[in-house]
Amino acid sequence: MIRIDTHIIACIVFAAAATAAGILIDNAYYLQVMIFIGINTLLALSLNMLMGYAGQISLGHAAFYGIGAYATAILSTTYNLSPWIALPVAIFAAVVIAYIVGIPTLRLTGYYLGMGTLGFGMIVSIIFREWYSVTGGASGFVGIPPLSIGNFVFDTDRSYFFLVWGVVLFFFIMCRRIIDSRVGRALRAIHDGEHAAAAVGVNTAKMKLSIFVLSAAMASLAGFLYAHQVYFISPGSFSFLASIRIVTMVVIGGMASIWGSLLGASLLTLLPEWLHTFADYEMMVYGLVLMLVMIFLPRGLTRGILDIYENSRKKDDR
């Protein structure tokens, strides 16, 4: 019970901080950066459920992000449907595709799983690029409408900020619930050892598939939010590199940590904004940070720093 209480406190603190930020920040640029942090947090959280908790790597997660974005773009622009009709369709599309792809792919493990998801991601991004008549091809898809409820249009950055962070907060709570439930324990069992989990009666295949589908649905929602914020999408945003960026957010922030997703997404969104002064070195710094964190803090920043703190405390106790 106590654990749930602290999490509720953390969520309230977080909600208060987000609300305060939303009200006090008066600069559209900062609001927009925060919106991107929100969208990226959702993405990182979705992958963290799969990678951090269930231990199933995905190098093609941007595919689902893209499916959400393209589904809503096509439905709400080409077919003039309300985005709120497009939203369930976008999520449904991601779920169906994740289900179909997940059955054979999730039977793989380790590198083979990584390569399987990578192959899937590459094929989806090639489809975005080559299915010219539907997706607008490499030039991208223009003219995606803003979201609206009745007469209220989410066309200011502030309103969108609250929408995005509201969604993020909802998923923070939901994911925490899942992790603390029987399902969450089963997932961690799979992470620690699939055969052992199966031996104690966890239906590993079904469990992995459901978390994969959930993860895809969340990524698709992030894509939906992205499309209606930027009003423009192009295949480059959902390429292999985008998948790697999502993995990086999870890994840097901390695997199997909900708040780590927030930290990872914030760092990876803010870092390029700060780094742009040494543009040519950016790629090297990025690669180096990724390697160093993995070598020295393989559990990510939040977990890693906690581990160091814990170790030093243990030493003190002695």
């Binding site: 654990r3 602290t6 999490h7 406190i9 953390a10 603190v13 977080f14 901080a17 987000a18 305060a20 930020a21 006090l24 920040i25 900062y30 925060m34 940590s257 708040w259 780590g260 927030l262 930290l263 914030s266 939040t302 906690l306 703190y309």
Partner: peptide, 16 residues
């Protein structure tokens, strides 16, 4: 959890 929550709050504060 508490430490993580504090870290998060600090980040938000930094953004502000």
């Amino acid at each position: 959890c508490r430490i993580i929550a504090i870290v998060t709050a600090l980040i938000m504060a930094a953004c502000l």
